[in-house]
Design a protein around this nucleic acid. Sequence first.
DNA 1: CGGTGTGGTATAACGAAGTTACACGCTTAC
DNA 2: GTAAGCGTGTAACTTCGTTATACCACACCG
Lengths: 266, 266
Amino acid sequence: MQSVSSANPDEPAAAGTPGQPWSQEETMDGMAGDPTRDGVPERVVQATIRLLAEQGPSAIKARTVASASGLSTMVVYHHFGGIAELIRAVVDQGFKELDKAFSQVPVTEDPLADLYAMALTTRRVARENPHLYDLMFGLSTRRATYRPLPDSDVRFSGRSPAFHGAYLHLAEACARLVSSGRVRQQEPEAIGAQLWSFVHGCITLELAEHFVEFDDPVAQVLQPMGVNLAVGLGDNRERAQASHEAGARLYDSIKDGASRHEPLAP
Amino acid sequence: MQSVSSANPDEPAAAGTPGQPWSQEETMDGMAGDPTRDGVPERVVQATIRLLAEQGPSAIKARTVASASGLSTMVVYHHFGGIAELIRAVVDQGFKELDKAFSQVPVTEDPLADLYAMALTTRRVARENPHLYDLMFGLSTRRATYRPLPDSDVRFSGRSPAFHGAYLHLAEACARLVSSGRVRQQEPEAIGAQLWSFVHGCITLELAEHFVEFDDPVAQVLQPMGVNLAVGLGDNRERAQASHEAGARLYDSIKDGASRHEPLAP
DNA sequence: CGGTGTGGTATAACGAAGTTACACGCTTAC
DNA sequence: GTAAGCGTGTAACTTCGTTATACCACACCG
């Protein structure tokens, strides 16, 4: 249905030849050894993320990515298959970094504080590279010269393994919140969806500059809303407020240990 | 800083010649007369919205838009100035439709019901054209072959007059909610930001297919979250629940009077 | 009533950018 | 040592944004 644009009735088969190297680089998890040896796909992804942060999505061209990686445009096609797949890999890397950032939020005896620290962490990650965050969650993620993504991506409906890694932190904290008895008994997944919705909505609107009238969107929107939602979920208001303040302190204590994309010299 | 990508040190002056016709077509508000006479910019915008709905953002090319309008690519440049400006006009039209949809939500004596009906209306509009909604709120709105937007767009920080029209409905209902005394006394703007955040977050995540595990995202996420937030804002749970059910009925009673983009024959 | 001018449109070309074909070189296995 | 294969660069091909120019219709003016 939503195939390519104009008169272009070719390219349906496309993925017939086996043995392509661009199967979403599995070698990325290890990478304990030589950082320069065969780290080409990773370097390309990092270069793309840097371009995204510094110049926005429109700067992602095969030629710019290639020259930023010190290679030719072939790397994009040889290792990924095309720009669209490269962006997919970039989004995946974004979720890996979010996962890593969540991993640095400690698990305390106050699950609501942990959750609010995760919310602040998500906001920090989003603000570090707004365009990457936009790609990670935007509908338009699965476009950029849209292609129906022919092969093994039926079950991949917006989520990736890296995404699930990050999501697990949220889900687990929600389960702890329910089992702590501070909120009414209910499905942790429903709580997770609600928390995720409001944090994501806040961040998105702030990034889109819809909250410019607020001096401090965190103090004026995010935190009050977190408290309100916790109260609505069944928590006591004073305790919810205290947990959010504890979460803010938790966040402050760890916010410098996370990843950063330092611009390497060309 | 975030200028064009590669070697392209020209085009700074660009907007020197006066008297261009593409000053965000003012003739659009009236349009009470002949629908075929001089409705060219409107036709182009509608064609673009249709392309967006049917084939996604990557289908928006000067050539596809032109042929879908039955004209040549010059219409894009003559009436708008370029693809980026056309997309701006499309986003503006999206907000106008949202504004119109909000206008059809009646003002009742139950502001929380009205607000929830507006939330459901927003979801309907978003689902009617997800890619348009994405453009309206995505960061990437101000990209698509990004240009620093040279001239009079300093004060335009993501909002347009059409946007404000839609936003006013929300703000006014929030003010009524506060003055009704059902919630704690607080700034209506803060309430508006919170409601908007959670609705927008829900919709965005649902559109990105992150809620596929829920059979009915409205019943399982949106409505419970609205009730929870209302309770957190100070409302009584039973009354908040009743208002949401009333809002759902309100929405059902008006959901067919809104705009639709019927695919015209080529 | 004919001339002139202006605005809207089409055609065609230019340049940028995605993509591909192909050839070269390096590594590795036999 | 040789051959196979992977990775890479070069150079084309194609698509698409954009612009230059010509044409056409209408309004205005003589």
